[in-house]
Structures are given as C-alpha cells and as structure tokens.
Design a protein around this nucleic acid. Structure first.
Length: 216
DNA sequence: GAACCGATTGCCT
DNA sequence: GGCAATCGGTTCG
C-alpha cells in the first residue's frame, strides 16, 4: 500500500502549483494528499485517480462552450475548489487550474483513505474500505463536501468572509508520486472520448474503475 | 418558462 | 448488464 504507513504531509501546496497547464497539474496531483476539515472532523486521502478538463477546445469540459454562470469559476483564480452537482444527487470535487482568465480544472475521482476513516464510514454507510472514496460522488460523500464548498480557496486556512465561517477547510499537500501512471479516456462523458485525460496510479486498490490502456 | 441533459451510484434482474 | 433516482445548468421556443 502506497504511503499507508508514513505520516502524510500537511502543508498546503502554493497557489502557483495550480497555475500551470491542466494536464501537468493533473499528473502532479497523483500521490498528493487531499485534506478536508468538515464540521470539525479531519479527513485525508492519497490522490490516486484524476481527470483533466480543459478550456474551449475541450467539448467535454464545462468550459467547452465558453464562459457560463457555472463554468465561470474555471476561468477564475487557480487553486480554488470547483464543486458541482451531477445527476441531481452526487457532487464532484475539482481544483481550478491555469492562470486567471484561462479555463481548466482537475476532477479528483478517487483517493486512498489515510485519515478519518471512521468519519468516512459514518457518512458513506457500510461499504468496503477500498470503496469509501473510489469515485467522485463517493469521495465527496465520504469527505462531507457539497455545493457549499464551491469557490473555496485551497489555502488550508479558515475562510473568514464577513465573520461567517465556511463549510470547512480543504487543501492539498505534496506527497510521494506513484511509481507508474496510466492514462486513458475520461469516464462518463460522451464527447471527446478519445482524449486520454484520465490519469491514475495502477497499483492503487482504491480506483473507481480499472485503469485504462495506454501508459505514460 | 419548459424541456432536456448529465464529469454517478446502487440496486435490480 | 440494465436502469431509476433527482435537480441545477443550459438550451430552446
């Protein structure tokens, strides 16, 4: 198990980490630690599966048809959480990438639980540990992330806006990159299926699906 | 406004 | 493997 015994680092990655090419950021996020403090409960997991969503040139991206009220956040500051609702019931957690003005985001599809597994089980109900955070919807459910988290900065500090506490804190810390990275088509999309913009650690047992073909 | 469509999941056959 | 659940965003009239 990767990093299972080591104590994960906690220091938040700087904003400039995310202000780069989206595919670069997506690959670099593998092995990093996602920290979430929701309702005073701290959870963390090792990022093992991500997908890159690009700008106007990517028909599968929410930014694929330009700036809309929803996709505007993808054109905004990097290092910000982009959370949306899919199928009327599941949430997806993304990190905004690229410099301000250029659209991009990385969808976190799966993490290996490292901290707070009890809380995850409580939120997710009975399910095998390997499946607690294996999938974008499952991950958000396990970590307590919903629409209220949309727009939060990944600074790791409490957001103090008008003295009102936010829903919680979320940030990402550096970790040990996987020995191998597999790329493949993104999951659940109909457009641009040929693009290998899904990246995962094939050695992880916590993936949402088996790794695609085509190694990088 | 109304109709349509999902970056999913879990339960059913 | 098939399919229903469920609602915000986008598109169309």
């Amino acid at each position: 198990m990767n990093q299972r015994t080591a104590t994960p680092r906690r220091r938040p990655l700087p904003r400039r980490f995310f202000a780069r090419d989206t595919v670069l950021v997506a690959r670099a996020l593998l092995g990093c630690t996602l920290w979430v403090d929701s309702g005073g409960t701290l959870c963390a997991g090792r990022v093992v599966e991500v997908e890159a969503y690009l700008d106007e040139r990517d028909p599968a991206s929410h930014a694929g048809r330009g700036r809309t009220p929803r996709s505007a956040i993808m054109f905004g500051q990097p290092g910000v959480a982009y959370v949306y609702l899919v199928y009327g019931m599941h949430h997806c957690f993304n990190v905004v990438t690229e410099t301000t003005g250029r659209a991009g985001a990385v969808l976190i599809r799966a993490v290996e639980p490292l901290v707070g597994e009890d809380a995850m089980r409580t939120r997710r109900g009975s399910s095998p540990d390997a499946e607690l955070c294996a999938g974008p919807g499952r991950l958000c459910r396990a970590l307590g992330i919903d629409l209220a988290w949309n727009g939060l900065s990944l600074g790791g500090r409490l957001r103090s806006v008008a003295n009102k506490p936010g829903p919680g804190r979320v940030w990402i810390a550096a970790g040990e990159p996987p020995a191998q990275v597999i790329s493949g088509p993104r999951i659940g999309i109909r457009r641009a299926v040929e693009r290998p913009l899904r990246f995962c650690d094939p050695e992880s047992r916590c993936l949402s699906r088996s790794p695609g073909l085509g190694s990088l």
